[in-house]
Amino acid sequence: MKLNALLKTLGFLALAATPVVAGPSAPAPKNPIAPAPVNDDLGITASIGYDSNYVWRGFNFGQHWVRAGLNGELLLVGGASEDGAGSTSLLWDVNYGSLAGDQDSYSPNLTTANAAIKNTNSFQRLQLGAAISHDFGPAAVSFGYSYIHNMGALANGGGLNQAGIFGQSQGYGMNDIQQLTLGANTNLGPINLASSANYDLVNGGWYFDLTAKSTIAVTDAISIVPHAGLGYGLHYNAGLTQATRGLIGGGTLFGQSAAQGGISGWTALNVGIDFPIKLNSRATLTPYVAANLPMGPVKNLARSSTNAYAFGVGGGPATPFHSIVYYGVTLSVRF
Rank of each mutant, 00 (worst) to 15 (best):
S223V: 11
I224P: 10
I224K: 15
V225N: 14
V225T: 15
P226R: 08
H227K: 03
G231E: 03
G231P: 03
G231H: 08
Y236H: 14
Y236F: 13
N237R: 15
N237G: 11
A238W: 06
A238V: 14
T241N: 05
Q242E: 02
Q242H: 08
L247P: 02
G249F: 01
G250Q: 04
F254N: 11
S257I: 04
S257Q: 04
A258N: 13
A259S: 15
Q260C: 09
G261V: 07
G262V: 05
I263G: 10
S264Q: 05
A268H: 04
L269P: 00
D274Q: 06
F275H: 10
I277M: 15
I277Y: 11
L279D: 10
S281L: 10
S281C: 10
A283L: 12
T284L: 09
T284Q: 15
L285P: 09
L285V: 11
T286F: 02
V289N: 01
N292S: 12
N292C: 09
P297F: 07
V298A: 10
K299A: 12
K299T: 07
N300Q: 12
L301H: 06
A302S: 13
R303A: 12
T306A: 10
A310Q: 14
F311N: 15
G314W: 00
G315V: 05
G315I: 03
G316A: 08
P317G: 09
F321K: 05
V325A: 14
V325K: 14
